[in-house]
Amino acid sequence: MASTAKRQRIAVAKTYKIYIDGKFPRTESGRYFTLEDKRGNVIANMCRSSRKDFRNSVVAARKAQANWAKASAYLRGQILYRIAEMLEGRREQFVTELVLQGAGRRAAENEVDTSIDRLIYFAGWTDKYQQIFSAVNPVSSSHFNFSVLEPTGVVSMLAPDNSSLLGLVSNLAPVIVGGNSCIVLASETKPLCAVSFAEVLQASDVPAGVVNILTGFRSELTEFFASHMDVNAIIYCDGGKQVATAVQEAAANNIKRVIDRTGINWSKPDAGHPYLIRDTQEVKTTWHPIGT
């Protein structure tokens, strides 16, 4: 009996959902798009997120940001390291997903390993970037004048389409290292790893709402990622001049930081650097009277 049951076991296919406020809902719109491999076989039905999913994500990200920024650098570093540990434990799953979406096995393994290493790299920066980028400034009056970095707040991100895991990690880690919260639109053509990465984040003590990950169509959502008044910066990693112009114009309404990261090869060893952290930081300069 048992052996018959084993032979006839029904496949358990994973439902890929989106990640908002620490939970895995389906898109509120109820819409889906089908992901196929090269031969046209269906891999999965992905949520086609709507602007309302994005709106809900921004609410969650805004709510979570203050406490995340308040967490000590040491704690944020530990959590980043924990993400790397969790990813390491699920290495095989991510390799399989990358292969399923068309990568060679060797390239897939490389991408996952580099992603883990990059997380550890940024985990180390949490308590160091302030020292590199902050300064005591010379002034010619009796003031103690110093500049320190503060997180810009809520960041929206159009993740790289091609480098679906490593590109995501390389852009996401510096944002949250610096105490920001973010909403990510995953790679449109290779969205599987982003959803699985959300599961890693959830298991790594990243507070709910700090990272929100949506899947869906860039052409539909870019406008809202760029124009939302409660988003303080937008990072985009693909698209030609047309996308750049559209993003910059829509982002101007509340003077968002616009960060263009098109054309970067994220697999290069020097693709991770602390200037990525500084991109989503604001400099606060304090004039403190002395000697009076």
Binding site: R51, R55, V58, F224, S227, H228, M229, D230, N253, N254
Partner: peptide
């Protein structure tokens, strides 16, 4: 048509 922020 643009989502708003409590900041304003």
């Amino acid at each position: 048509g643009i989502y708003q922020s409590a900041d304003y």
